[in-house]
Deep mutational scan, measured.
Amino acid sequence: MTYKLILNGKTLKGETTTEAVDAATAEKVFKQYANDNGSDGEWTYDDATKTFTVTE
């Protein structure tokens, strides 16, 4: 399945997607991506749209 990440950071904004077997796997990928790019904030997940959002 395709999962989407929306970044609403102070310095990093945008979207990216990943293919993953489940939401937990996608979350690990996205959290590593956000960490690698210095983005940290409040995470939410919408199962209906398969979208993670991180807001700083």
Rank of each mutant, 00 (worst) to 15 (best):
K10P: 11
D47G: 07
Y45I: 01
Q32A: 12
I6C: 07
F52V: 01
Y3N: 02
V21R: 11
V54N: 02
T16V: 15
W43Q: 01
A48K: 10
D46I: 03
F52C: 00
K50H: 11
T25D: 07
L5P: 02
K10F: 12
Y3A: 02
T49H: 05
G41R: 04
M1T: 14
Y3S: 02
K31S: 04
A34R: 03
Q32V: 08
S39K: 09
Y45W: 03
G14W: 15
N35C: 12
E15N: 06
D36E: 13
T44H: 12
T51F: 01
D47A: 14
D40K: 13
D40M: 13
N8S: 09
E56N: 07
F52K: 00
L7G: 02
N37D: 04
K4Y: 14
F52H: 00
T53P: 00
A26N: 00
Y3T: 02
G9D: 04
F30P: 00
D36C: 11
Y45S: 00
F52E: 00
K10A: 11
F52D: 00
I6H: 04
E56D: 11
V21A: 12
G38I: 13
V54H: 03
K31Q: 07
K4S: 05
A23F: 13
D22T: 04
N37L: 15
V21E: 10
A24I: 10
N37I: 14
T55R: 06
T11S: 11
L12S: 11
D47Y: 08
Y45G: 00
K13R: 11
G38L: 12
A48V: 10
A26D: 00
E56P: 11
A20Y: 02
A23L: 08
D22L: 03
V29P: 01
D46P: 00
A24L: 10
T2I: 14
D22R: 01
Y3P: 02
E56V: 12
G38H: 09
E56Q: 12
L7P: 00
A48H: 09
T51I: 04
N37Q: 13
A20H: 02
F30K: 00
T17W: 13
E27V: 05
D40F: 15
K50M: 09
L5R: 00
L5W: 02
T18S: 04
A34E: 02
T17Q: 09
T25Q: 12
M1A: 12
T16E: 05
Y45H: 01
F30D: 00
K28G: 06
L12K: 11
E19G: 04
D46Q: 04
L5Y: 03
G9E: 05
T18H: 06
E56M: 11
A34I: 12
D46A: 03
F30V: 00
L7Y: 10
L7V: 08
G41L: 12
Y3F: 13
L12D: 07
T55E: 06
K13F: 10
V54P: 00
A24G: 07
E56C: 09
T11H: 13
Q32S: 07
T16S: 07
T55G: 05
K50P: 00
Y33P: 00
Y45Q: 00
E19T: 14
T16Y: 15
V29R: 08
D47H: 11
E19F: 15
E27H: 10
D22C: 04
G41T: 05
G41K: 04
T18A: 07
G38T: 05
T17Y: 13
A23H: 08
E42K: 09
A24T: 08
V21T: 10
W43H: 01
G9P: 04
D22W: 02
D36A: 12
K4T: 14
T2F: 08
V29F: 15
T51D: 00
K13W: 11
G38P: 03
L12C: 15
D36I: 12
T44A: 09
W43F: 04
A48I: 11
N35P: 03
V54D: 01
V54F: 12
N8L: 14
T11R: 09
E42P: 04
N8E: 08
N35M: 15
T44M: 07
F30A: 00
L5F: 05
M1R: 12
G14E: 10
S39M: 15
A26C: 01
A23Q: 10
G41S: 04
N35T: 13
L5N: 02
K4V: 09
M1P: 07
D36S: 10
N37T: 09
L7W: 11
G41I: 04
A23W: 13
K13C: 14
T11E: 09
E56L: 12
V21G: 08
D47N: 08
T17F: 13
K31F: 05
K31Y: 05
L7M: 12
A26E: 00
K10M: 11
M1V: 13
T25Y: 07
Y3L: 02
F30E: 00
V54M: 10
E15R: 06
T44C: 09
Y45D: 00
T53H: 06
E27R: 09
K31T: 04
T11Y: 13
L5E: 03
A26T: 00
E42V: 14
A23K: 13
T55L: 06
A26P: 00
K10D: 07
V29N: 05
T16N: 05
N35F: 15
D22S: 06
L12Q: 11
G38S: 06
N8Q: 11
F52T: 00
Y33S: 01
A48M: 11
K10N: 11
A48D: 10
D36L: 12
T51C: 03
T49A: 05
L12F: 15
I6S: 03
T18R: 04
N35R: 15
G14F: 15
T25P: 01
T53M: 09
E15A: 08
M1G: 10
V21I: 13
V54I: 12
A24S: 09
E56A: 10
A34Q: 03
T2D: 04
G38K: 07
G38F: 15
K13I: 10
G38A: 07
L12G: 12
D40T: 14
E19K: 13
I6K: 06
E42W: 11
Q32L: 09
V54L: 13
